[in-house]
Amino acid sequence: MKPLLDKNLTPFLKRFDNFLDAEFRSIEIVSPTVIKIALAAQDSARGFDWITIELEFNGVNDARVPDNSKLSHIDMSKGITLVYADNQFIFGVGDYNCSNITDSICYIKAISLKYLEGEF
């Protein structure tokens, strides 16, 4: 896994078009402070082929994650929110900002973030 730094968030999100119409594959709670999620998205760096992106959040201090059985019902038409604010990474499904991210059906706040590119 590669670290995803705050300065690289904008190009990362642009590469995957903010994960608009992506597919939520899985959520794994590794420990109380580590959560992994897998998303399938189109990669503009690969001719818009579909790939799987795994995000690993470390130092999780707040989260709401749905059960894996409900992931296929999550509307990903608005993509994801992924920002760095207040010395933490803030992730949410949908178009949110830092102040209302807790309104998202799925959100994670963590100290660090890593990612891994995989096959579709």
Results as ranks from 00 to 15, higher is better:
Val83Glu: 14
Phe48Asn: 10
Thr102Leu: 00
Glu117Cys: 06
Ala85Tyr: 13
Ala22Phe: 10
Ala110Pro: 07
Glu119Gly: 03
His73Glu: 12
Leu55Ala: 04
Asp86His: 14
Lys36Asn: 13
Asn58Phe: 06
Ser112Asp: 14
Thr10Trp: 00
Phe91Arg: 03
Arg64Thr: 05
Asp95Thr: 04
Arg46Asn: 09
Asp86Lys: 14
Val93Cys: 06
Val30His: 09
Lys109Trp: 02
Thr10Gln: 08
Leu71Lys: 05
Asn100Ala: 03
Asn18Trp: 14
Ile111Tyr: 10
Leu13Val: 08
Thr52Asp: 11
Ile51Thr: 06
Phe89Tyr: 15
Phe12Gln: 02
Ile53Asn: 05
Asn68Gly: 04
Thr81His: 11
Pro32Phe: 10
Ala45Gln: 13
Ile80Gly: 06
Leu55Gly: 04
Asp75Trp: 10
Glu56Gly: 07
Phe91Gly: 03
Ser26Trp: 08
Lys7Ser: 13
Ile51Gly: 03
Ile108Pro: 08
Phe16Lys: 02
Ile27His: 06
Tyr84Glu: 00
Leu82Pro: 06
Asn8Glu: 15
Ile35His: 07
Ile74His: 10
His73Lys: 11
Thr10Glu: 12
Asp67Trp: 03
Pro3Val: 06
Met76Ser: 09
Val93Trp: 06
Leu55Ile: 10
Pro32Lys: 06
Asp6Gln: 12
Gln88Val: 02
Ile111Ser: 14
Pro32Ser: 10
Asp95His: 09
Ile80Ala: 02
Asp86Tyr: 11
Lys14Gly: 01
Ile105Ala: 03
Leu20Arg: 14
Ile35Thr: 11
Asn61Trp: 07
Ala63Met: 01
Tyr96Pro: 00
Ile51Glu: 13
Ser99Thr: 12
Ser44His: 13
Ile37Tyr: 09
Asn8Arg: 07
Glu56Phe: 04
Ser77Trp: 08
Val93Arg: 01
Tyr96Cys: 00
Leu5Pro: 00
Asn61Met: 05
Ile105Thr: 08
Gly47Val: 06
Trp50Asn: 02
Val93Leu: 05
Thr33Ala: 04
Ile101Ser: 02
Tyr84Ser: 04
Asp62Cys: 05
Ile51His: 06
Ile51Leu: 14
Lys36Val: 04
Phe19Lys: 05
Ile37Trp: 05
Glu54Gly: 03
Ile53Ala: 00
Ala85Phe: 13
Pro32Ile: 04
Ile105Val: 14
Phe19Ile: 03
Gly92Met: 02
Gly79Thr: 12
Lys2Tyr: 13
Asp75Cys: 05
Ile29Pro: 00
Asp62Pro: 01
Leu82Ile: 07
Asn87Ala: 12
Val34Thr: 15
Asn61Lys: 07
Lys109Ala: 08
Asp17Tyr: 08
Gln42Gly: 07
Asp17His: 11
Leu116Phe: 07
Lys70Ile: 01
Ser77Tyr: 09
Ile105Ser: 09
Asp95Trp: 05
Thr33Trp: 04
Arg25Thr: 10
Glu117Arg: 09
Lys78Val: 00
Gly59Asn: 09
Asn61Ala: 02
Thr10Lys: 13
Gly118Cys: 03
Asp17Glu: 08
Ser69Cys: 03
Ile53Trp: 05
Ala110His: 09
Leu116Ala: 13
Ala85Glu: 15
Arg15Asp: 05
Ile108Gln: 09
Ala40Trp: 08
Phe24Cys: 02
Ser104Gln: 04
Ile27Tyr: 07
Gln42Cys: 07
Ile27Val: 15
Leu20Gln: 13
Ile74Gln: 02
Tyr84Val: 02
Asp43Cys: 09
Asp17Phe: 07
